[in-house]
Amino acid sequence: MTVNGVEQVRDIEPRLLLVHLLRDELRLTGTHWGCDTSNCGACTVWMDGLPVKSCTVLAVMADGRSVRTVEDLEGPFGLDQVQQSFMDCHGLQCGFCTPGMLMTARKLLDDNPDPTDTEIREAISGQICRCTGYRNIVAAIRHAADAEAAGRGDT
């Protein structure tokens, strides 16, 4: 499989979950291991370009596929806009849900660069913020959308 563009080969047990492969074997601890029941979304990563909950994907099922984690958001020119906007808008408090929120937010804006607040709330409805900081998370995603629109020269 490739993880963040890097080919990874491991000999693993079939029962190893993707979240544990990422965290324990590859030491990519940005992906958080939360509820373990596919409810909270802290473990959300991309597999073949789609956000999935990595606590409910067997690592072996990702064989031959491409996985992207929160570590890959930052580019050569700095933080991804969603990361920057979460900082600017205080979109995180304890930070536990943040990696999943960021991965879902990035995918939302890639597909829909100008979402309504309802669409943002719908997109993150599979993520739980136990600080209940949803208002600022929505504001941060809105801010990222606006910043990216400004960057493209949209009015």
């Binding site: 596919s38 979304g41 959300t44 789609l50 956000p51 999935v52 909950k53 409910t56 994907v57 879902t104 719908e122 997109a123 409805s125 599979g126 993520q127």
Partner: peptide, 9 residues
């Protein structure tokens, strides 16, 4: 049904 991330899978 469930949430958008679960529905992807």
């Amino acid at each position: 049904i469930a949430d958008p991330v679960v529905r992807n899978r």
